[in-house]
């Protein structure tokens, strides 16, 4: 009864098929390793070059220094200049704060109106238009800030007797705020829609008006999610480069007011690394120490935001 050949064929067919499966699996696995490798590459290159930077400059002088004045002519003397992070950090925070002050109220009220008040067809038209703001390249915002918003603010300031610099934290922050409106509005919109209808009904059933329901029930219920959206937007603002390169004024000085030119972490990365590539002196290596700082800041913000949003979703599942 044993006729070997069909069985062998069967066997051969399936083992060939198995080989293909294994090869495909390996190939796919390799591809998904690229994402991991990218992260590893980012971390290693930032850490490695930052350590080289800290062999020139004391980390304490970097993290707590209040003066930023790198010297470019390092060949003659051993004086590398000063690399205090604080002026850049405060500049970054000024811009992020102003951006949030613009984006949070506008984005949140937009989300509220679109998700709670607007008829479906109005919402279908306006939502994509507002989302255009997130798709515009940042260089375009930067140019707009530089040639239009800056001079306008300067003129407006002069009218009321305020001395506003055309390129300043205010200019950059304002325009960056516009850029992150859709981040806040889309995420808040999603989150408001996730608050169970029962919550809304409970409030209406007690005789609350729509705005009372929104302000006193919906928003408090959605608060964790909205905070998450806010953190994501702040992380976006901190890492944004082109707007500040063009419109913040490139003046790395500790400032107590946002009306004057400032510089940010990202601006200094661009300034220190363009043109120079041999990465031998602290002048270019500092870009990696700044990049590492930036990476850690945004990473923490993102992790916090994702965590909060995930907790919020679980609460209503």
């Amino acid at each position: 009864m044993r006729s070997g050949s069909p069985e062998q064929n069967y066997h051969r067919f399936y083992s060939a098929r198995n080989d293909v499966e294994i090869a495909v699996n390996a190939l796919l696995m390799f591809c998904s390793a690229v994402a991991i490798l990218t992260t590893v590459g980012i971390v290693l290159s930032l850490v490695f070059e930052a350590i080289r930077f800290f062999s020139f400059i004391n980390p304490a002088d970097f993290f707590f220094g209040t003066v930023w004045s790198p010297k470019f002519s390092s060949t003659t003397t051993n004086d590398h200049g000063q690399y205090g992070l604080l002026p850049l950090l405060t500049g970054t925070l000024w811009v992020a704060t102003i951006a949030s002050l613009v984006a949070v109220p506008i984005g949140l009220m937009t989300a509220i109106y679109l998700s709670q008040y607007a008829p479906r067809n109005v919402r279908a038209v306006i939502k994509p238009i507002i989302e255009i703001l997130a798709g515009i390249p940042t260089i375009v915002y930067g140019f707009f800030a530089l040639v239009t918003v800056g001079p306008f603010l300067k003129g407006a300031g002069a009218l009321v007797g305020l001395d506003i610099s055309a390129t300043s934290a205010l200019t950059a922050g304002l325009v960056m705020g516009v850029m992150i409106i859709p981040f806040i509005s889309s995420l808040s919109d999603d989150i408001l829609n996730q608050v169970p209808l029962a919550m809304r009904d409970g409030s209406y059933g007690l005789g609350a008006t729509q705005s009372e329901t929104i302000r006193k029930v919906l928003l408090p219920s959605a608060l964790p999610g909205i905070v998450g959206a806010f953190l994501l937007a702040v992380s976006r603002a901190i890492g944004e480069t082109m707007i500040v390169v063009l419109a913040a004024g490139n003046s790395p000085v500790l400032r107590g007011t946002p009306l004057e030119p400032i510089s940010t972490i990202t601006v200094s990365i661009v300034n220190q690394l363009t043109g120079d590539t041999d990465f031998t002196g602290p002048q270019s290596l500092v870009a990696f120490a700044l990049g590492l700082t930036l990476f850690i800041m945004t990473l923490l913000l993102n992790i916090a935001a994702l965590y909060i949003v995930r907790r919020f979703r679980e609460q209503y599942e």
Binding site: L46, E49, I238, G239, F295
Partner: peptide, 21 residues
Amino acid sequence: VNINNLAAVPSIVFGLLGAAV
């Protein structure tokens, strides 16, 4: 988690990666 975070890494950091690597 890594992919989600990668999506939110500032673009300039990718520039640093390119320059270094």
